[in-house]
Design a protein around this nucleic acid. Structure first.
Lengths: 121, 121
DNA sequence: ATTGTTCTCAACCGTTTGGTTGATAAAGAC
DNA sequence: GTCTTTATCAACCAAACGGTTGAGAACAAT
């Protein structure tokens, strides 16, 4: 289930350190050690963070000490989800605005396509 | 810090139930009770979920029993973050491709065309 | 004012998370 | 080979999470 995958992606990015790792990997691949250097947590902690990112599919490596690479395709998963509901919500607002405009400018509200919506009192 | 806000937004969306709530609110406002109905968890659990969404700024209400409304602007925060690094990563790939192309068309074949990474810095 | 209904608060419980330290595996360097 | 560096595994800990139940607050209705 890719639903579960979305959960993992969002959860992975909910941590500031992990978001920073992603941000840095966007400009250059880097080894675990290099990535860990700037933070004041242990290397093990960063290694764990990378595992979370890897399990979410946001990051990959060819071998143990190889540089970590950002997996940009996963971003599409998120944007697809976001865009869908953002668009849907915006359409609703537009419909609502149209309805209000109609009610105000004209006293013949006969056909309102958004009939299931309660009247915004 | 709006950095912290991003964390809250991503964390909020990391839960499938909360994503579903957002999905449903994208098509229509709804009260807590209405929102809770389809799930087999307690109303209190859903109320908690809504609080998480509210703290993240994803959702709002005018009063206690008023219908919950989706706050679409927050999506921009995410897409802005995502787009930035996605774009950055893509640019890197393009630069890398260009580099490889140059190296191949140019002098000695440096053999091993699949040695993609590093040295791009 | 009393009654219902709707929602939130509080306390609790098991699991997950982000961190630690210490030991161990794996890859390069000599 | 041996040694050193690099990264992971394992066990542990405190805090946060997602759920429960029970009590109480807030609002609508009579």
């Amino acid at each position: 289930m890719s639903e579960d995958r979305l959960s993992r992606v969002f959860a992975a990015l909910a941590d500031p350190t992990r978001r920073d790792l992603v941000a840095r990997l966007a400009s250059a691949d880097a080894t675990v050690g290099e990535l860990a250097a700037p933070y004041d947590v242990s290397l093990q902690a960063v290694s764990k963070h990378l595992k979370v990112l890897e399990d979410a599919g946001l990051v990959s490596r060819e071998s143990r000490r190889a540089p970590v690479r950002l997996e940009a395709e996963v971003f599409d998963l998120m944007t697809k989800w976001i865009d869908r509901y953002q668009q849907q919500a915006e359409e609703r607002y537009q419909r609502l605005d149209a309805l209000l405009a109609e009610m105000q400018g004209d006293t013949a509200p006969t056909r309102d396509t958004s009939s299931r919506e309660e009247d915004a009192s």
